[in-house]
């Protein structure tokens, strides 16, 4: 499975990060630093796979049921799969036994979806609309797995949700304005 996904600019700034594993803020910061030093300096002749060892996960909250320990704690050997698109690096972290090539294709699928969604996407789109990039990622991935491979379906679902949110927003703004007006008049 995918453990996290990150979009990093060429300067090492994180533009988007999606985590599917439990981890503390400090650990996330360490990982981001690791990734910046491991991935960014690689020249383009090198392959898009980097072997990497993840820091151990934080102790999970004690579960009264005695549920089996998450398998992620057993093996921390990970692979970083990255691809560079213009000034943005897309980095995925997958388990050791996963299909590296398929992960590369997954990156591409996400980028294509972003491109279609924003219409010729650029880094600024992701910076200013990172929430939308997250929503799109949520239509594509769930729990670290790919849920939809059809770009058109992903876009349709994302746009439908956007529309739904827009509609309610307009209504609620009117509503809020009305309420505020009412509140003000009552006070005076």
């Amino acid at each position: 499975m995918m453990h996290w996904m990150m979009l990093i600019s060429r300067q090492g700034k994180v533009r988007l990060s999606k985590w599917f594993d439990a981890s503390t803020t400090a650990q996330r910061a360490t990982i981001m630093r690791d990734v910046v030093t491991l991935v960014l300096p690689r020249p383009s002749v090198m392959c898009n796979v980097v072997e990497w060892t993840s820091p151990p996960p934080p102790p999970s909250s004690p579960s009264p049921s005695g549920a089996p320990a998450p398998p992620s704690s057993a093996s921390l050997a990970r692979k970083l799969i990255y691809r560079r698109y213009a000034s943005l690096y897309f980095v995925l972290c997958i388990s050791d036994g996963d299909n590296e090539l398929s992960a590369l294709e997954t990156v591409h699928l996400y980028v294509e979806s972003l491109d279609k969604y924003f219409g010729n996407v650029c880094e600024l789109d992701v910076i200013f609309n990172f929430d939308r990039a997250y929503f799109l990622a949520d239509e594509l991935f769930l729990g670290g797995h790919l849920q939809e491979t059809n770009r058109a379906t992903v876009l349709r679902n994302a746009r439908a949700a956007d529309e739904l949110a827009e509609r309610v927003v307009k209504f609620s703004e009117k509503d809020a304005a009305a309420r505020r007006a009412a509140g003000v008049t009552s006070r005076v």
């Binding site: 929430d131 997250y134 929503f135 949520d138 949700a161 739904l164 949110a165 827009e166 309610v168 927003v169 609620s172």
Partner: peptide, 10 residues
């Protein structure tokens, strides 16, 4: 509200 819910879940 769906818009709220969406952002909250995110």
């Amino acid at each position: 509200k769906f818009a709220d819910k969406r952002v909250g879940v995110l």
